[in-house]
Structures are given as structure tokens and as C-alpha cells.
Computed example of a mutant assay.
Amino acid sequence: MRYYHLPEFGGVDALRLGERDEPRPGPRQVLVRMRAWSLNHRDLLIARAAYGRDVRPGVVPLSDGAGEVAATGDGVTRWRPGDRVAGTVIPRWTAGPPTAEKVAGMLGGSLDGVLAEYVVFDEEALVAVPAHLSLLEAATLPCAAVTAWHALVEVGGLRPGQRLLTLGSGGVSLFALQLAAAGGAHVTATSGSADKLDRLRGLGAADVVDHAADPGWGATVHERTGGVDHVIEVGGAGTLRQSITAARTGGRISVIGVLSRGEGVGPVPLLRKALTVQGVLVGSREMFEELNRALERHRIHPVVDSVFPFSDAAAAYRRLASGRHVGKVVIGAD
């Protein structure tokens, strides 16, 4: 079978396609024939040796993918050959709050990822693909969609009528927009592109702000909304100050990404507004299953920006690195 690995960390050009024997599932394990994969910003950071967390030398990249069960090992009760499944990003985190033990390994970093034609999973580290989604769509869910669900619902307690701010047009932000709009929230979305702002409106944003034309976009959002209840903060240091400005007193900021650079923010603005700022690390298998039920109930389809063949996975990396994408960059089986 074919698989990709990173024998060294030098960006996209370090990605290597190799051949090895098809793996076999052991007891309580499942062999999945992978049919689709998707990329996250984390994958770019890992390839560039800029992730800042443990990464196994020679790692098989990517945490996100979907496929069909090809075979099961002894003792497997959850799955049968032919089932459509997706893997969880953090295999040991099945339910409950995170602990150091549960989140000790993540696919595509400290553990081998899924950018291979066949992958073995523990039977507890898989979820069923929503019936209304293709495998290409399902491949976008494990990291970005679960993270958005975790932030909005599990810790955010999303309710109809709440005011949400999303930043940009990447995977987490778009999933948050779609889920929140379906849940009756008022979503304000930012982008620096007129075309992308139109797309965000089409996906359910009630209001949009051009952050490129308006460097003080946080104050603009606060003026229009009276302060948002919740910010999905994917920018990091470069956007956090504006997100704090946009939030209402007593609001929440879910810190998810590090897409932009900037100066640090002192505690005084947080104290003055009594803000809750919480880091969100993907989510458990149980959260993934709850997300999938919501996607089915509301018939939500992920936004797929583009699809590249498995034989040219590097092109998918380059598309994501360009920043021109809207939604998820996907790799499909040749």
C-alpha cells in the first residue's frame, strides 16, 4: 500500500510517498481502507517543525480522514466490514473531561496519522459517518468540526439568540458559523476578502466585517452587537486583543488557533470585562458522536474548498498554505 511520511521536517517539500505492506488488525482493532483525508493548519506547522509539541520522527501525517472498514480483529463488536467510519484525532479520549492521560497522543504528531491507503484503529477510536455525507465531506470532521462543537456546545452552552463572532474562513470558523446559525444564534463573521465575505453571508452570517479595511474591527463588532457572547478565536496573539474588545462583559473567548502573530495581551482587559478565556483542544469521541447527530438533524454539509488526488497530496498542502481557501482542503483516493 502507499503512504506518506515526513522523514524530516522542512515544509511541504519534505513530504515523501512510500510503499509498505498492508497492516493487519490485532485484537480489538479495525483495519480501515481510507478513501478521503483533509488538512488542518496544524499539519502545516508539523511539516515546518513549528508545531511546538512532540512529533514523532518519520511520522505519517494528518489527523483527519474517513473510509470503509476492510477487516476487524478478534473481539471487535462495534464495527463490521463495509461500515463507513472516521477516526478520532485523540484516540484515547472517548468521553468525559480531558486529562493528561487521555490526551497523551494525537494522530499525525506524536502518533502516526492517517495519510495512508490503509490504517489500523482501535475499535473505540472510530465513529460512524453521518448518512447524508460523502466520505470526502466526512473526512473534514475529526479536528475542525469537533473543535467547533466542543467550543460552542460543550463549554459554550450555545443557545438561540446568542451573539457569536467567528474569524476568517477556515475550517473551525466555518463549522462554528454553520452550527451556530442552525442553532438560532446571531453570527458576525470577519474576513479580509470581499468574495469571502459574500460566502460567509451565504453560509448564514447575519453580519460581516472586513478586518483588512477596518483594523479596529473589534470595536466595530462591539458597536453593532452590544458585545458578542462568544468569540471563536483562531488567530491567537495577532487577533486576541480585538476579540477582547468585541466581547461583552462576562462573555467567553474560546482560544483555538495560532494563525497570526502579535504582541501579548495583559490581564487587565480580561479582568475589566470579567471574560472567560478557555483553550479548546479538539474533543472526545463522545463529542464527535454528538456533533454527527446535530449534522444529521440539521442536514449540514461541510464546506469543501478543493479536492486533490492522493498521488499529489503536496498540492493540497500548498493550497492550504496559500490562505486562499474557503473551508476545508481535501485529498481523495486516486
Rank of each mutant, 00 (worst) to 15 (best):
D54N: 06
G216R: 13
L200E: 14
D312L: 04
E117I: 06
G226Q: 00
V255H: 05
L295A: 10
V268Q: 15
V30E: 14
G226V: 00
Y118Q: 12
T190N: 10
A314K: 06
V255G: 08
S260Y: 00
G105R: 03
L203Q: 07
A50Y: 01
A71P: 12
T220L: 08
L164H: 02
R299H: 10
I244A: 04
R2K: 01
A176P: 11
V32C: 14
P61W: 13
I331A: 10
V234T: 14
D312N: 07
V208S: 06
D334R: 11
G327W: 07
D13Q: 00
V30G: 12
R2C: 00
G227H: 04
L107V: 06
L44N: 08
L141M: 11
R261L: 11
A36N: 02
A189W: 10
A176G: 08
S243P: 11
R33E: 11
L141F: 08
A274Q: 13
V114I: 02
L15Q: 02
A70E: 14
R285H: 13
A86G: 12
A206K: 15
G204T: 10
P91K: 09
R252T: 11
L126I: 03
V228F: 10
D13K: 13
R285M: 12
G202A: 11
V85P: 15
P130L: 04
V255W: 01
L135A: 07
V265C: 08
G161L: 11
L240S: 09
D214T: 08
V208L: 13
G266C: 15
G10T: 01
G266T: 15
S191A: 14
L158P: 15
L15G: 03
L115Y: 06
W149F: 11
L291Q: 05
A95Y: 03
E137W: 13
E22F: 11
G168R: 04
P160W: 00
L271V: 07
Y317D: 05
E263N: 10
A145V: 06
T239G: 04
E263W: 01
W93Q: 02
P25R: 06
L133T: 01
T245N: 06
V326T: 12
H222R: 15
P302I: 12
G226W: 01
D214L: 00
T190M: 12
E101K: 14
H186T: 13
V258Q: 12
V103F: 05
A14Y: 13
L164I: 15
E8Y: 01
Y4R: 12
P97L: 13
H230N: 03
R20I: 05
L31F: 05
A125Q: 09
V76A: 02
G26N: 14
N292P: 01
E19I: 04
V129C: 07
I46Y: 00
Y3A: 01
V172A: 15
H301R: 14
V12F: 00
V280H: 10
A194P: 11
A176S: 12
G262F: 07
T225V: 02
V59S: 00
P23H: 11
G73Q: 06
L135N: 07
G266N: 15
M1H: 03
A185D: 01
G87D: 09
V153H: 12
L275Q: 09
V187M: 14
A314E: 00
F9E: 07
A71L: 15
L126H: 08
G227R: 06
Q242W: 07
G238I: 01
E154M: 01
G171E: 00
R319K: 08
R319D: 00
G192Y: 10
R261P: 03
S193L: 10
A176Y: 07
